[in-house]
C-alpha cells in the first residue's frame, strides 16, 4: 500500500545515514514490467495511465539476493560473497571501494559510503553491534567511509530465528519470509499457488526475492 514502513524500519534498525535507503518502495503499475525507460511520472504515488483508466501499484525493492549475483561475480577481492543459505553479504573489512558491484547490479540497490555519513539523531538507534558470519564482518552500526553497503536480509536477526525487520514491521503482512528449499513453507506455497515472479528474470540473475501478482487491482471509478 506504499506506506514505506518497511523502508523506514530498515533505516532505523540498520542505522542508515541520511540519503541512504537499502529498501525503497517504487511506484509502478499492477503487474507492469519493472523495466521502464521513460517513467510515466517522476514522482511517487502518481498513478500510471490516462484518466479514468488509472492504475497504481507499489514495488518494494531492496537487494534481491540473487543465486547468480553479478555483484558477487564482479567483486575483484571477493568482498561481496554468497552465504550457503543464499544471502548476499559484504565484508566491510575487505571491500576496496571500487564500486564495480554498483555498476554490475541491475536493481540499483547498493549504496556507497561516499562520505562519513550523517545520522539524525546522531546516536545509534538500531541493532547497534558488530555482526560476523563465517568470520567476516558483515554488519557494523557505523560503516566506514569508502565501502559499499546494502540490505543484509537482517542476517543478525534471521540467524537467531527472527524475521528480517522489514517483514516484521509491515502493518499489512505484505512481506513473507521463509525457506525456499522447504516445499511446505509458507513462501514456497504462496509462490507455487499464486505464480510469483522475479524482478528482471530475463537477465538470469535468479533472485531469491519473489513478487506475488497483484490479483485485485482497484479501479478508479468516477
Amino acid at each position: 500500500m506504499g506506506c514505506w514502513t518497511c523502508a523506514v524500519g530498515c533505516k532505523a534498525i540498520n542505522d542508515e545515514p541520511l540519503g541512504y535507503w537499502w529498501n525503497r518502495i517504487l511506484t509502478t503499475e499492477p503487474n507492469g514490467s519493472a523495466q521502464v525507460a521513460t517513467s510515466a511520472s517522476p514522482a511517487i504515488d502518481v498513478p500510471h495511465g490516462v484518466f479514468p483508466n488509472l492504475e497504481l501499484a507499489y514495488l518494494p525493492v531492496a537487494c534481491q539476493h540473487c543465486n547468480n549475483a553479478p555483484c558477487q561475480k564482479v567483486c575483484p577481492v571477493g568482498a561481496t560473497f554468497r552465504r550457503e543459505d543464499g544471502v548476499i553479504l559484504i565484508d566491510y573489512e575487505r571491500c576496496i571501494g571500487c564500486r564495480y558491484c554498483l555498476a554490475a547490479c541491475p536493481y540499483g540497490v547498493r549504496i556507497f559510503n561516499w562520505g562519513p555519513g550523517e545520522r539524525v539523531p546522531d546516536f545509534i538507534i538500531g541493532y547497534g553491534e558488530d555482526y560476523r558470519t563465517e568470520g567476516r564482518l558483515v554488519f557494523e552500526p557505523v560503516r566506514p567511509m569508502g565501502v559499499m553497503e546494502k540490505c543484509t536480509l537482517c542476517v543478525e536477526r534471521i540467524d537467531v530465528g527472527e524475521e528480517p525487520f522489514c517483514v516484521a514491521v509491515c502493518p499489512v503482512g505484505a512481506r513473507v519470509f521463509g525457506d525456499l528449499n522447504d516445499p511446505q513453507s509458507e513462501v514456497s506455497t504462496l509462490i507455487n499457488e499464486e505464480g510469483a515472479s522475479q524482478l528482471l528474470a530475463q537477465l538470469g540473475t535468479d533472485p531469491n526475492i519473489y513478487y506475488l501478482p497483484v490479483r485485485h487491482p482497484d479501479k478508479v471509478s468516477e
Binding site: P17, L18, G19, Y20, W21, R24, L26, T27, T28, A34, Q35, V36, A37, T38, S39, S41, P42, A43, I44, V46, L59, V61, P106, Y107, G108, I111, F112, N113, W114, G115, E118, L199, L200
Partner: peptide
C-alpha cells in the same frame, strides 16, 4: 538505470532541501 521508477535510486549523500533520490 535499468529499473527507472520513482522515486529513483538513493544517492548515498544528503543535501538539505534536495531529494535524496
Amino acid at each position: 538505470p535499468l529499473i527507472q521508477l520513482p522515486p529513483g535510486i538513493a544517492l548515498g549523500t544528503f543535501t538539505p532541501g534536495a531529494s535524496p533520490f
